[in-house]
Nucleic acid binder design. Structure first.
Length: 347
DNA sequence: ATGAGGACCTGCTCGC
DNA sequence: TGCGAGCAGGTCCTCA
């Protein structure tokens, strides 16, 4: 299933394939795909039609594509089978060029003022979601939940999702709220979709603040794995990478957060970053130019897993058989020797 | 406010 | 062979 590395691979692929292109038609084939969009399928398709993708961004497992109405952005039937290389405006690494802001659909605020109202297509792939780019007339698989065609007549974009945990929505962009009072606010400057403004930066983005993470972690009263899975504390980590990071850091998954020493938090953070980086490296190598693939089965399995799913197999470090514990109606895999349980309540 | 647990969904695997 | 139970996963919602 798509996790942060796979999502980043998809984001990067779509950045190349859809930026600068204008939506001609949008179709929702399964309403569940847009269940989080307050305007429903009709509102969603209406909001997408005629818009041009201007940026492709990601935080944790969410990605979003900023959209604008550009003048002359809605011609149809141009007949070109392939878009020219996208102009890709506003894709600066930082300090995005906002000169086109005034072209955005004017917001109808109460006092009538023309508020800025950037919006984005927000995407979560869930367990089985994929965003595929390809020939518009290729067969429509039964799992396609939404489809977008472009005004240039080139490749279309399809959201497929077998298990329908993923979703799409159009959402306004707002300043991210990622800091608490007294913490560094350097993470709070980015524009993020409003529904995910509460989500913390992921460890691979510049806005991530290790000190702020450590401080917030210390205030939690829960197990470390549960904390790692809490997207409002640190984003982008799922069950698989949580187990892998804890194995690397030699920490038991149930370790109470308030008992973690400073050095252990650093070790854990380093393990998390390493695991995600390595997985990204492995997952980012395999998609071709025509087909933005997020096939989960070929994604993270390329990464060498030391704990997750290896129940009974010898630990790569010490040889003890990896154990599986029930955790949140799921599993937690760990090495009983490298990641010992507490003795007499002492960690 | 905060933590814990269930619901959501569907394809696959397992056991009877 | 057929069928049901169990499992997997992330996020949102509800309850304590």
């Amino acid at each position: 299933m798509p996790e942060l590395p796979e999502v980043e691979t998809v984001r990067a692929g779509l950045e190349r394939h859809v930026l600068g292109r204008t939506i001609a038609t949008a179709a929702v084939l399964n309403p569940r795909a847009v269940r989080r969009d307050p305007t429903g399928p009709a509102g969603f398709t209406a909001a997408m039609t005629g818009r041009t993708f201007t940026r492709a961004e990601r935080r944790g497992k969410y990605m979003w594509f900023a959209m604008q109405y550009l003048p002359g952005g809605q011609p149809t039937g141009m007949g070109g089978s392939r878009p020219p290389s996208p102009p890709a405006p506003d894709v600066g690494a930082d300090g995005p060029d906002r000169k086109n802001r005034d072209l955005v659909r004017p917001a109808s605020t109460d006092d009538g003022s023309a508020d800025e109202c950037d919006e984005a297509l927000l995407v979560h792939l869930g367990m089985s979601g994929q965003l595929l780019v390809g020939e518009p007339d290729r067969p429509l698989s039964s799992h396609v939940r939404a489809r977008f065609t472009f005004a240039d007549g080139g490749d279309d974009l399809r959201f497929t999702d077998q298990r329908t945990f993923g979703h799409l929505m159009v959402a306004p962009l707002v300043p991210a709220i990622t800091s608490l009072p007294g913490e560094s606010d350097r993470a709070g400057v980015d524009l993020v979709p409003e529904p995910i403004s509460h989500i913390a930066p992921d460890p691979l983005e510049p806005a991530f603040d290790p000190a702020a993470f450590a401080a917030r972690l210390a205030r939690r009263k829960t197990g470390i794995k549960r904390a790692l899975l809490d997207q409002s504390l640190i984003s982008g980590i799922g069950n698989i990478y949580a187990d892998e990071a804890l194995w690397r850091a030699k920490l038991h998954w149930a370790r109470p957060t308030e008992t973690l020493r400073r050095a252990e938090v650093s070790r854990l953070l380093e393990a998390v970053t390493d695991v995600l980086s390595e997985a990204l490296k492995a997952g980012g190598t395999s998609f071709d130019a025509q087909y933005v693939n997020v096939n989960g089965e070929s994604g993270y399995f390329d990464v060498s897993l030391n704990a997750y799913g290896r129940q009974g197999e010898p630990c790569a470090r010490c040889g003890a058989p990896i154990r599986r514990d029930a955790f949140m109606n799921r599993s937690a895999f760990s090495c009983p020797r490298c990641q010992p349980r507490p003795r007499n309540g002492h960690w």
